[in-house]
Amino acid sequence: MTALVLLDHEGGQIRKAALSAVTAATRLGDVHVLVAGDAALAQAASQIAGVSKVLHAADARYAHELAEPLAALLVSLAGSYDHIVAAAGATGKNVLPRAAALLDVQPIPDVVSIVDAQTFVRPIYAGNALATVRSSDAKKVLTVRSASFDAAPAEGGSAPVEAVAAVDSPDVSRFEAVHLSDSARPDLESARVVVSGGRGMGSEEKFHALDPLADVLGAAVGASRAAVDSGFVPNELQVGQTGKIVAPELYMAFGISGAIQHLAGMKDSRVIVAVNKDPEAPIFQVADYGIVGDLFEVVPQLVEELKK
C-alpha cells in the first residue's frame, strides 16, 4: 500500500508538522509526497527520510496552496494511493476535506493514533473523548496531529523527484496577499518549551512580561482564547480546541484558568507548570507543578533563577 502526503510549506520551508505527517504515513505503507512550489522545496522534500518518491507540482497556480486547484490536483493523483495524508494545519484542513468530497470519501481529521490501515483514533469534544473510528471508504483521507507523531528526519533520504502536470480546476479563487507574523521564536507547534499567557496577563503591553522568560528558555509563546479574544495577542498564538494543539516537553501557563477548550490544546504536554492567583483554577488539576501567586512577581523571579 502507498500513501500520498501533501507537504505544506511556509516562507520557503517545508513545515515541521508535515514531517510528522510523513512519520504517520510510514505506518500505512510506502510514502510518496506531493509538494507544490519551487524546485528548492522539491529538493528539500527528497531529503526527508522515509520518502520514496516526490511529486513536484511546479505550476504557479499551486504556489499559494489554494484549496480549489490543489484539491483537484490531489484528486487527479488519488488513483494510485490508498491513503491521502496531511498535517492537521491550516493547509491540510483547508484542502483535504475538499479533495475528500470530490472523491466521495468522509475525511478523518486530527488523527492521534493509527490502529491499522482502516482504523484511527481521534479526539472529539475538545479532547474530552477519544473516538476510535473505522472507515469503510475505499480511500482514506486523513489529517494527523503533529504533536502525536515524531517528525521524520529532514535529512537522510534520497527520493527521486517526478514532475506532475497541472490539472483543470474551477477558476474561482485568487491569492491576494499573506501577512506572516515575524517572530524569531520557535514555531509554537514544534517548540520544546511553550510559555503561554491568559486573560490574567491584563493587556497587550503586559503580555510582553513573558518575553524575557521565553528568551531565557528558548521557548515559543502561546496564549489562551481569552487572551486572543481580549486582543492581547494575534490569533495564531492561540492554544486550544480551536487553535493550535501542542505537546511540548514543558508547558508553562501564566494567568490561564484552564477552560476545557484550552486544555484540549495542551494537556498532552510532558510537564505542565501553572502560575495563577486563584488556587481553585482548574489548570492546577492538570499541572505537575503549580505556584499560587501573582505572575508579574513570579515571572521575573523565574528569569533570575534560570539565569543562574
Binding site: 473523548a129 477519544l130 473516538a131 476510535t132 473510528v133 505542565i272 488556587p279 505537575d288 505556584i291
Partner: peptide, 21 residues
C-alpha cells in the same frame, strides 16, 4: 465511519504546589 469505541482520555495526575520560583 463506524465508531468502534469512545473512551475517556488518560487522566493527568494533579501534581504539587510549590512555594517559590
Amino acid at each position: 465511519l463506524t465508531v468502534v469505541s469512545v473512551a475517556e482520555p488518560a487522566e493527568r495526575q494533579a501534581g504539587i504546589k510549590v512555594g517559590s520560583a
